[in-house]
Design a protein around this nucleic acid. Structure first.
Length: 470
RNA sequence: GGCGGGGUAGCCAAGUGGUAAGGCCGGGCUCUGCAAAAGCCCCAUGCGACGGUUCGAUUCCGUCCCCCGCCUCCA
């Protein structure tokens, strides 16, 4: 039985992932989702692609993964955006939510079990209940304007995840005007009382009209849907402090149980040496890249092919490399299909191919896994070049295809569905075949130009003409 | 200042106390009417710098240099 090991941010050591129940197979996975005030950029999606790889590999290893991803649809930025647009908050966030799910599918991310929204009435109710509990237990306090803050001094473990000592922290640049009467600078808002800029945004609570703080949103949604102790919690490294630290404080103070067993964080996507961020303006959305002619799976490959804990420099050279590598994989796949023919029985693959999954067991070592994939590709191509002794047999090809199906289950990089070839193009291809048989090369080339003019590319292979969308 | 991640061929990148995976680019060849595609082969005496330990270090230890991130609502 294979065991999956990951680097736990909390312990900073490699740990084997095990279910909470002795004989169980289920793992709960909570992943911080987007704030829907704009289109998510591909830096955001790097985290989601990493989480998708994690989920798929855990499934390959026999676990049942219950994944929840939240959508933050109320915060300063969404309120500001709605206000600027002069529309209701829900109307402002709706198109960004829809776009997010569209991008999600384009990148072949597996569906989560639930996507709770912070503004859902049941979630708001849960947040209010949690805040009430924290107040009762003395972990929170209300200030003059009605806002409620978490009392960090009441939770000695605060800072354990990030390994920070609050005494050594430099004060941040921002000092919000509504936080002047906090007990301690580091105390964070659980409930923000309504102010004029909030417009129509606000919910009634025991502390008056207001809205939840960002941290309590995640705490409430995570424990509400997955239970008081979650197995794996992921996010970007920038969320370790203070967001995840705050989540721990809230959940463990309110519930009294350990909040998360394994914390995993992925490094940033970089652009020319700096972190890709909306605030820096150096970002690309998936839409930007699709418009430039890149496909979802090419972007997925580029994002998935670097280990999640290393910074990934985003470049168009990198995308081009992804495209070429995928083309090789596609050609190999087709060759295997041809070699396998109608053969049903599969010969087991070389044991070394299991190295692909073993590499992922080791904290998702994707580079090593891809190394196995491409070595397998070359070795079997070599054998398909041969005839007679040593040549790849149909049943061996079938075995490799079966293995490849498992690899696809984890990487999800199989080719897009073949585009439907218009009858007009089909006719030209047939005419060209006839011209080629008659060795009328000039006519053949003319027809090829016509096909190209219609937006298709024709290639002459040993098996005849192949047509792909240009 | 505190904490964390990193410096491996033109680019991306894995890895190991015993002599450097893999991908892209580039070069060669094969296939081929041409073109394109594809396949195979080649491509780091070298792993930020300098010391030390060792039979042997890119890998361990020490010192130093450089890059990036977080430090209160950024994945």
């Amino acid at each position: 039985m294979a065991s999956v090991h990951i680097l736990n941010t909390l312990s900073r050591s490699l740990e084997e992932i095990t279910p909470q129940e002795r004989e169980g197979k289920t793992l709960s996975l909570y992943t911080c989702g987007p704030t829907v005030y704009a289109y998510a950029h591909i830096g955001n999606f790097r985290a989601y692609v990493f989480e998708d790889l994690l989920q798929r590999h855990l499934q390959e290893r026999g676990f049942l993964v219950r994944r929840v991803m939240n959508l933050t649809d109320v915060d300063d930025k969404t309120i500001r955006g709605a206000h600027a647009a002069g529309i209701a908050l829900a109307d402002y966030t709706k198109p960004f939510k829809e776009a997010f799910f569209e991008d999600f599918r384009t990148l072949r991310l597996q569906e989560a079990e639930a996507y709770p929204c912070a503004t859902a009435p049941d979630q708001i109710a849960r947040m209010i209940a949690m805040i009430g509990t924290l107040l009762e237990k003395g972990h929170a306090y209300q200030v003059e304007d009605g806002s409620v803050y978490f009392r960090i001094a009441s939770f000695p473990n605060y800072g354990r995840l990030a390994h920070v000592d609050l005494e050594n922290q430099r004060p941040g640049q921002r000092v919000a005007s509504d936080e002047y009467d906090k007990e301690a600078v580091a105390d964070f808002a659980l409930w923000k009382s309504w102010v004029a800029e909030d417009g129509s945004v606000g919910w009634e609570s025991p502390w008056g009209k207001g809205r939840p703080g960002w941290h309590i949103e995640c705490s409430a949604m995570a424990t509400g849907l997955l239970g008081e102790t979650i197995d794996i919690h992921c996010g970007g490294v920038d969320n370790i402090f203070p967001h995840h630290e705050a989540e721990i404080a809230q959940c463990e103070c309110a519930g009294g149980k350990p909040f998360v067993r394994y914390w995993m964080h992925c490094a940033h996507l970089m652009v020319e040496g700096s972190k890709m961020a909306k605030s820096s303006g150096n970002f690309f959305t998936l839409r930007d890249l699709l418009e430039k002619g890149w496909t979802g799976r090419e972007v997925r490959y580029a994002l998935i092919s670097v280990h999640y804990r290393g910074a990934l420099n985003f470049t168009f050279d990198g995308l081009a490399a992804a495209r070429t590598a995928l083309g090789r994989l596609d050609a190999w796949r087709e060759r295997l299909i041809e070699t396998a023919g109608l053969e049903n029985t599969a010969e087991s693959t070389d044991p070394s191919t299991e190295g692909f999954f073993a590499a992922l067991d080791d904290d998702l070592n994707i580079s090593s896994a891809l190394g196995v994939l491409f070595e397998t590709l070359r070795e079997s191509n070599r054998r398909m070049d041969q005839t007679g002794e040593g040549a790849l047999t149909p049943s061996q090809a079938r075995g490799l295809l079966n293995w490849l199906a498992r690899v696809d289950g984890v990487l999800a990089l199989e080719p897009d569905a073949v585009a439907i070839i218009p009858s007009e193009v089909e006719e030209l291809v047939a005419a060209r075949a006839a011209a080629r048989n008659a060795k009328e090369w000039q006519k053949s080339d003319e027809i090829r130009d016509q096909i190209t003019g219609l937006g298709w590319t024709v290639k002459d292979t040993k098996e005849g003409q192949k047509i792909i969308k240009a």
